[in-house]
Amino acid sequence: MSFRAKSTTDDGVVTIRLIGDLDSRSAPVLNELIAEIDAQPVRRLVLLVDELAYLSSAGLRCLVFAHQKMGRGVDIVLVGVRPEVAETIRLTGFDRSVIMQDPVET
């Protein structure tokens, strides 16, 4: 599945919707987006990942990159993580670095 990332910013909260497969081919796309966002003041980074079907270690390194670019004070929140993706995040200990939330019912 191809990868798409769309971002919106509202009062310092950056929301990025990730769709498809985040692997070594697509990770540079997200890193580029993160680098662009870093040019503006960010209080919180929200990743909507309910449509993220696949996450490899290259995708995990995007989270490392986001942390490094935005600094300790910026929370990174993953919303709607699929079970297989959540397993990858937990196995590598990244659940200690990000906040994982269920999608908000509307």
Binding site: S56, V64, H67, R96
Partner: peptide, 19 residues
């Protein structure tokens, strides 16, 4: 690194083969 309090600290990489 897996036992680190925060895996985003330290050198990048190293998780792929473990997974």
């Amino acid at each position: 690194r897996l036992g680190a309090a925060d895996p985003t600290e330290g050198p990048e990489g190293g998780f792929g083969l473990y997974l």
